[in-house]
Nucleic acid binder design. Structure first.
Lengths: 108, 108
DNA sequence: CTTTTGTTTAACTATTATGTTAATTAACAT
DNA sequence: ATGTTAATTAACATAATAGTTAAACAAAAG
C-alpha cells in the first residue's frame, strides 16, 4: 500500500479523524485527554493511536507515565502536496463550473 | 462520519487509490479500463467504484453500455483545503526541522 | 512497599469490507 | 431474434476492523 494511501486509511475512521483534528487544534495531548472525542473506552483510543502512529500520522513522546501525542507535520503536508500536484486539474474544472453558474445567474 | 473522513476512507484502500490516480492521470475512463490497476475481477472494480462514488470522489457518465468514470475536482480540492487550513502548523514545524538540520551540517 | 494514575496488551465478539464466481441487466451488432 | 460486449448485482466465504472488559505494566505518590 502506498504511503499516502495508508495515511488516508488512518484518517478514514471518524474517531481517528477527530483525534487528529483535536491534536491539530490543541497541540500535544496525553492519551487520556483524547477520550473526549467520543464516548469510547481508553483501550479503544489507545488502539486508534497505535494505528495513527503506524501510519506516521502522529508521534508519541513519553512523560512519566503519560504518553503525549502530537501530529507529525510531514503527514499533513504530504496530503496537501498530493492534492496540489493535481491542482491544475481541479482548479481548471472548478473554474469552468463557476463560469457556468455565472452564466445561469445572468439568465435570470 | 465527517464528509472529509469518508473521502479519506475511500482513498484509504490501495486499489481505490490506484483507480483515482489513474483517473487523475488519464482522465475519464470506462470501468473496464480500470481493471489494469491490478489483477482483480470486474465485479471487484465495480464495487470499488461504487464506494468512490458514494464518497463523492468520482462521478459516472453513461455512454451506451459503458460507464465512464472521472474524478470529482471538489473532492481533491477539499483534501487540499483541509491540509492548507493547517498550513501554519506544518510549515512552522518543518521550517524548524530544516533549521535544525542545517545546524547539524554546519557542525561537520 | 502499597496504592493510585495513566496507558497499553490480551482475549473475545460483532460488524464491516473485500474478493470470488455465477447470474442478471443493458445496449449494440448481426 | 440472437449473440456479443460492458458492467452491475447476488450470494457466499474469509479477512480485517473496532469495540468491550479484564489483566498487565510502569511510574508517581503516599
Amino acid at each position: 500500500m502506498s504511503n499516502l494511501s495508508s495515511t488516508f486509511a488512518a484518517l478514514g475512521d471518524a474517531t481517528r479523524f477527530a483525534i487528529v483534528e483535536k491534536l491539530l487544534q490543541e497541540g500535544e495531548l496525553p492519551a487520556g485527554e483524547l477520550r473526549t472525542v467520543g464516548q469510547i473506552s481508553a483501550p479503544a483510543i489507545s488502539r486508534h493511536l497505535k494505528v495513527l502512529r503506524k501510519a506516521g500520522v502522529v508521534e508519541q513522546r513519553i512523560d512519566a507515565q503519560r504518553r503525549l501525542y502530537s501530529v507529525r507535520p510531514e503527514a499533513v503536508q504530504a496530503i496537501g502536496s498530493w492534492s496540489m500536484s493535481y491542482r491544475e486539474f481541479w482548479q481548471k474544472s472548478l473554474d469552468r463550473l463557476e463560469m457556468a453558474l455565472n452564466q445561469e445567474m445572468r439568465k435570470k
